[in-house]
Design a protein around this nucleic acid. Structure first.
Lengths: 349, 349
DNA sequence: CTGAAAGCGCTTACAG
DNA sequence: CTGAAAGCGCTTACAG
């Protein structure tokens, strides 16, 4: 029969303080502290009879080892921190899950936090994680100066940056080929006859946004097309701003005939604007989005592999912790152009 | 000038053990341990001069308080655990983020884990979190027997279940009105003239799947329609199974004229199948999905508010920790029918 | 096979 | 205003 306890019961007990400890178990089983420790940790050198008595005491008291205390003594916490921009962004779901799986395979738990694209909040979070003595850190940085991490790195906190590089420190980084992906995507539009192509991206201080813009410019230059100021727009990716940017590019005397979107948030809004638009405008977006194949036309994208970014970063993190890895590296993962229709539309004029 | 340290340097230092401690700071500043503690924690009663000296020592040594040690002494860890099915599922992104925001507002960090819909893995994760002495737990359960949590609840670990109820224990739970939402969605199809309506859902052991099926049956019964066996299909939500289920319902001598999907994973696949289908089939899905408004026709859904689920649960968790909350409750959040076209199609015959 | 002592890095309770 | 001692719940190193 399961006993039931009212919440009042639970609270009357000063929480946490009155949980049974190894000392309580030892007293009840009539053995020494170290013997309990041996049984709890499955160490050898305990007679079956003693072990049995200890296990009974553990069961009877509802003992559960306090890993906080263990950690203090052992040095490693078996936990890693993941700092990203926004847990709610679909791009980070598969990335987080991949990091978690690698952590799990290495016996570690994952502490997660969103920086909300705020450098101060990033630093606050990272340092809170360091204070908890996480063994390692996977960081999608919001800021561009990470010298605040120097003492931590020196103290041995493993660190890998993902999606964007670290600023002003030497650290491992795993990212997508943002430049090449954007260049290919824009070249694809040019290949389909477009010359007036717009670029709408995230804030220029964000590394991926800057790189993708650079890719756009490179493709245009390769084709000998001079980019007009009115064709590029960088800024926050909220729907209102992106919508305005798209509508401006699409109006006026010589509107763009194609748009390249700098990330998934931008894509969602631009696709909406284009759906309301009468003239057909070609479109390619960076990042794949769900159901992109079912829209009319299907949405052509430059896809990056978010899970692979997370997996690669986490694996490097644990290799740092093993001591296998000695030199910080920059790893670039390829992107993939997926053609579905929107990027293959010819210019409307 | 930022110094740079090779990874080898960092590793040669026995990690973690050789971080400066308060004792080191005290020695360097020529003060007692308690004085350092006072400065670090911003407590009153330290002269400006002493404080200054301590701060200099902290800076020089790169001291960062070890919160693991602090936690051991204080009792509360200022961290909460969130166990969900799959971090990569877009339904859980906004939910996690909402839990994180509430945690942050209460000064707590979030430890995150995926159960992968496996009851054993859920238990393993939950107990690992308890061993870390998280202050509270937000659980989207995979299993249906949570008696293993009894000792933890008794010890004062705050706990709130979300999306699905706890099994065999008395605990707070926050969920959507799965029954009512599904019933309304199916009634909507019936209102548009459908009588042969299919239901494709998740595994029947999952509470939400069972409730939504019950809602489907209730709507059919209210309309006096006898449900044929071939019209319902429950099981894993991977694309192959769902596709097969949909195709079977749509073929044969008297196919369904409408389909109700039990969750977002099912919706994505069914919408794909219907897009390939020549005959027009009406559709309503449980859970909203991105870009649903841009498909042809727009996808009518029964939307639940994932962020509200997370926020409500986390807020209750902290109210438990305050001692404000005394009786476990079941909170049901309403769903909302969003009509976009697919659910308003008339029967094809 | 078993256990007493010391210590991990902090905070608490107390004394000066 | 300041600090020495004890203790949080474990593990480590050692002795029997």
């Amino acid at each position: 029969m399961p006993e039931t306890h009212s919440r009042a019961d639970r609270l009357s007990a000063t929480r946490y303080g009155n949980r049974p400890t190894m000392k309580d178990v030892a007293a009840r089983a009539g053995v020494g502290l170290k013997t309990v420790s041996r049984v709890v940790n499955g160490e050898a050198g305990v007679t079956a009879e003693t072990e049995h008595r200890v296990k009974e005491a553990i069961e009877a008291l509802g003992f559960r080892r306090n890993d906080s205390a263990r950690v203090l003594r052992k040095g490693r916490t078996a936990s890693i921190g993941l700092v990203l921009e926004d847990l709610a962004d679909p791009f980070y779901g598969p990335l987080s899950r991949a990091v978690e799986e690698v952590a799990r395979a290495n016996g570690a738990l994952l502490i997660n936090g969103s920086s909300a694209e705020d450098p101060e909040r990033e630093q606050e979070l990272v340092l809170a994680l360091c204070a908890r003595r996480v063994d390692g850190l996977v960081v999608i940085p919001a800021g561009d100066d990470h010298r605040y991490l120097e003492p931590e790195l020196k103290a041995g906190v493993a660190t890998v940056f993902v999606d964007r590089p670290a600023g002003r420190i030497d650290a491992d980084v795993v990212l997508s080929d943002n430049f090449g992906g954007a260049r290919d995507g824009v070249a694809h539009l040019i290949g389909h006859g477009h010359r007036r192509i717009g670029f709408i991206g995230d804030m220029p201080r964000i590394h991926t946004a800057a790189e993708r813009l650079r890719g756009y410019r490179a493709a245009m230059e390769d084709a000998g097309i001079a980019v007009e100021d009115a064709w590029t727009s960088l800024g926050v990716t909220d729907p209102e701003r992106v919508r305005r940017a798209a509508e401006e590019m699409l109006s006026g005397p010589s509107p763009v005939t194609a748009i390249f979107a700098g990330n998934n948030r931008v894509t969602v809004t631009v696709v909406r604007v284009l759906a309301e638009h009468t003239r057909r405008v070609a479109f390619v977006g960076f990042d794949d989005i769900e159901l992109a194949d079912l829209l009319q036309p299907g949405v052509t994208v430059v896809a990056q592999d978010a899970a692979a970014l997370g997996r690669t970063a986490a694996e490097r993190l644990f290799r740092q912790l093993d001591g296998t890895l000695l030199t910080p590296e920059r790893i670039e993962l390829p992107t993939r152009l997926i053609t579905r229709g929107s990027g293959e539309l010819p210019p409307a004029d």
